[in-house]
Design a binder for these strands. Sequence first.
RNA 1: GCCCGGGUGGCGCAAAUGGUGGACGCGGAGGGCUUAAACCCCUCUGUCGCUUUGGCGACAUGUGGGUUCGAAUCCCACCCCGGGCACCA
Length: 966
Amino acid sequence: MRVDNPSSDAPGHDQIPAHRYTAALAAEIERTWQDRWEAEGTFLAPNPSGALQGSFDRVADLPKLYVLDMFPYPSGKGLHVGHPLGFIGTDVYARYQRMNGHNVIHAMGYDAFGLPAEQYAVETGQHPRDTTNANIANMARQLRRLGLGHDPRRSVNTTDPAFYKWTQWIFLQVFGAWYDRDADRARPISELETELANGTRQPEPGTNPGDRPWSDLTDRQRRVVVDAHRLAYLHEAPVNWCPGLGTVLANEEVTADGRSDRGNFPVFRRPLKQWMMRITAYADRLVGDLDLLDWSESIKLMQRNWIGRSEGAEVRFTAGSSEIAVFTTRPDTLFGATYVVLAPEHPLVDRLVATTWAEGVDPRWTGGASTPGEAVAQYRAQTLRRSDLERQTVDREKTGVFIGSTATNPVNGEPVPIFVADYVLMGYGTGAIMAVPAHDQRDFDFAGAFGLPMTAVVSPPEGWPEQPENWDTAWGGAGGGINSTNADLSLDGLSVPAAKAAITTWLEQHDAGRGTVTYKLRDWLFSRQRYWGEPFPIVYDEHDLPIAVPDSELPVLLPDIVDYSPKQFEIDDNTSAPEPPLGRATEWTSVTLDLGDGLKSYRREVNTMPQWAGSCWYELRYLDPTNDAVFVDPAIERYWMGPQSESDGGGVDLYVGGVEHAVLHLLYSRFWHKVLFDLGHLSSKEPYRRLFNQGMVQAAAYTDHRGLHVAANEVDERDGRFFHRDQEVQRHYGKMGKSLKNSVTPDEVCADFGADTLRLYEMFTGPLDQSRPWETKAIVGVFRLLQRIWRSILDEDTGMVRVADTPADEETRRILHKSIAAVRDGMETLRFNTSIARITELNNHLTARFPDGGAPREVVEPLVLLLAPLAPHTAEELWARLGHRHSLAWEPFPEADASLLIDATTEIPVQVNGKVKARLTVPAGMSSTDLEAAARAHDKIAPLLAEATLRKVIVLPDKLVNFVIG
RNA sequence: GCCCGGGUGGCGCAAAUGGUGGACGCGGAGGGCUUAAACCCCUCUGUCGCUUUGGCGACAUGUGGGUUCGAAUCCCACCCCGGGCACCA
C-alpha cells in the first residue's frame, strides 16, 4: 500500500491523474531543463575567434543573428509580470531563429548605476554595491525561472570595474577626438595638434579667444584651444540644477514644465562648469542615418523632432559698428522684417543699448524706465526671476523692452528698432531674430502688444483685409511674394521656395548672409554630482586643465566612502550649489602619477557619469565580454554587427524595448557608436538596425471612496461591480506597479502555473508591440492548452507515450502543414498570439480525431517543435519522452509542404449584390464558367436570379461569385 | 495648438494585395463524468426580429459621407482614447 497516496474516498481529496500536467509537474520539468541547458551550454553562441570561440565550426556556415533586449535596471522591488514581456518575445524569436538555422546571440545584462540604487541604499543603510549586487542576483534568479535562452557567459553589469573600465576608455576616446567638419567625421585630437602646429589648420572660430597666432601662444593657451575642440569638453554655462536630486541634469531629463524627469522636482538654471559631449557635431548624421534603420516611422519622427534640423539663412543686420546675425527659416520674408529681437542674454545687448530714449518714444517700449540701460537691466532681472514653468508657457503674453537703438535691414536699408525679449532663446540659432509680424504668429503677437508696424510680403488668402494690422492671425502659409523689390532684386510673384532661393543668393552676393542649417539639439551635459556612477578618468594639473588618465591606469575605481548619499537640499532652494559626494573622499581626490613629467600630484575629477553611459555601448560588450585587451575585438564586432550589404549600416538584428527610450538612450547610444566608428574601432555605422517597441502590460487598479488604491488582489467582482472587503471600489487600468497596488510577480505566476504558461499567456494576449491588460483569471486558457497537448502525447494515468507510429490521414496532414505555415508567419512578424492560436487549433484537431490516443507521430513531433520556442521546457520534456536524446533547441523548425497548403475542395461564397446568399463546395481550381453555372443552379440563388434582371457577374475562381441584379 | 499611433462581441484579440467578419482564448449558458464538488470532457454563445423550434431574415467593425459589383481594409469630414513636441524663429 502506498503511503504517499491518500485514500481516494477521503472527502476533498484531489483525484488528479498521476501524470497530468500540473503546476508542480511544470515546476519540476522547468527546473530539470534549466539545469540541463546550463550544464550542456545549449545557448552558448560561438564567436568566430577569441575566448568564446567554442565550437564555431558547427555554426560557421549559418547566418548569424543578434537579438537584443534593452537591459533592465535592477531595482530593489524585483520584476513584475510587465517587465519580461519583451524578454520573452525576444527569447521566442531567438529560439525560433536558432531552430531555423541561425547562429543566434542573445544575452542579458544589468544597467546598475544610477540614483535609485543610491536612494535605495540610503533607505536600507547598505552600500549601493551590496544592494545592487543583491538586486542583480534576485533579478537573475527571476529571469532564469522564465527559461530564457541567454548565453550566460555574456552577461554584463555596468557597475563591474571590468565593464566600466571600458566605459571610461570610451570616454577617453571621445575626449581624445575632435570633429573635422571638412572630412565630416571625428579624428584623433593628436592630428589636430599636428595640423595646428604646422599651420595647415586654424582653430575653429571662437576657440582661440585672442585669435593670436599659434606660435605666439603659451603651452597652457594652446591646451585651452585644443580642449575647446574636443568631443568631450568642460563648459561653463547655465545648466539644469535640481536641488531635490542634488545634481545637475541633461536637457533631455527636464520635463516641459521645468521639473526633473525622475522625482518631479523643480529645476533651476544656473551657471556651472560641467562636462559636455559634442553630440551636435553629429546632428546631421544622426538625422540622415535614420534612413539606414528599420525602425518605426513614429520613433524616427521623434528623433527627427528632437534633433530639430531647420534649413534657413543667417542674415546680418548692421547696428552701429556691430552686426547682428539672425537665423530665419523664412529668408523670403526679409522685406517684411520690421524689428529685430535679441535674447536677454545676447552678448551684443550691452554694446548696442543706447544711453537715452529718443524723443517721443512709445511708452509701451520703455518698461517705464528712464533710460534704455535701466530698462534692459530691469527686464533681465525680471526674466531671471521667472520660473522655467512661466517662461515656457506658450500663450503667455509677450514681454520685452526697446534698447533704444536701431539696426538696418540689409535688403531695403530701412532702420528697424532693436528689442530684447525672452521669447527669443539664446540657445537656439544665433540668439537673435528678425521679426516679420505679418507672417509669424509670435512676432505678430509681440507687434500687437507693442504697436509695431507690419508689412505683408506674402499674399494672404482671398478675403483677408488689405492691412496686416487688421488680420486675426499672422499668415504663415504659402503665397506669391509682394512688396519685396529693391534696386537689384524682386521676390514679387515668386513662390515661397523660389523666393528663398533668390534671397539666399542675393544675401551671399552682397555679403549680408548665407544659407545655413540649425538644430534644436544641444550638446549633452555629461556630468552628475552623484556617488553611484562611473568616475571620470580625468585628473587636473596645476593649470586646472583636464588630463586623461592613461589607458594603463584604467579602471579608475570608484572609491569606498562613508557618506555616499547625494547632498540633500530643499527642493526649491535655488541658491544651493552641487557638492559631488566624491569630493568627500579626500584621500582619493588627490593622486600622484607620472604622466610624462615625472611623479606629480594631480587632482581627480569628482563628478561621475550619467546613468546613460553604460547603456551607450553595452550591446558591443556582449559580443566579447571577457576581452581585457580591447572593448570588443574588431573581427568579432564585424561578424555580429557588420554591414550586410553596400546600403546597410550594420547593427543588431533585432532590438526590443519600450518607447520611453525613443529619444535619450537611442540618441546617446547612436552618438557614441558613430564616434567609435569614426575612430576606426567599429565596422557598423549604427548600433541597432531593427528596433521594435513592445507594448506595456497594464493592470486593473481599484480605488476606494477616498480615492486611495486598495490591493488589487483583494478585490472581488460581483455582478459587474467590484468590492474590497464589502466596500464597493472603482476600477481603472494603469501601469503595473507599487503605487497602484496592482503588481503581479512572475514568481507568483510560475508557482501557480509554471513558467511555460506565463510565457504563453504573455505572448497570447496580443501582438508584441501592443499594450495589453493583465488578467490573472484568463491565464488558465493557455495552461489548459499545455495540459491538452501533454495529454495528446502522454497517458495521464500511466505517463506512457500514447502516440501511434502510423501515417497520418490526409486531412490531419493538411492541417499540420497549414499550421506550420501560419505558426512561422506569426514567429517572423512577432505576432506570437496568432502562432499560439494555430497550435491550439492543430491540437484541438488531434483531440477530436484521436480522443483515445493514437495521434500519429508524424504530426505530434512537428507539433512539439512548433511549441518549442514558446513553451520550451514542456516541449523539451515531450521531445525527450518521444524518444529523443538531444535537446530540441537546435532541431530544425518544421517546414510546410506547399502542396499540402491547398485544399482539394474549397467553399465559395455566392453573393447577390455583394451580400452572401449561399455557399458552394467545389473542387479547387474549378473554371469560371463551371463555377458560375454551379452558382446559378444553387437553389438559394436560382429564384433570386429568376425574378430580377442580371446586370453583371463577377467570378473569381477559388474565391467567390457575385451576381449584380437590378 | 502641431505631429504620430489606435477605435471590431461582455473581455483579450483574428481576418495576404478590398472578396465568406468575429479564428483562438477568457467569461457566460447547457450537458457528461462524480454520492457530491473541483478537475477534466462535449455542445452552444455578435445584436435584434420572425419561427410550424430544423431554421429564416435583418442589422452589425467609433460617427457621418464617398469610391467600388463588393469596404474592418481605400478617400473625405468629425468624435473618442493613447503617445510625442511645445515661444526652436
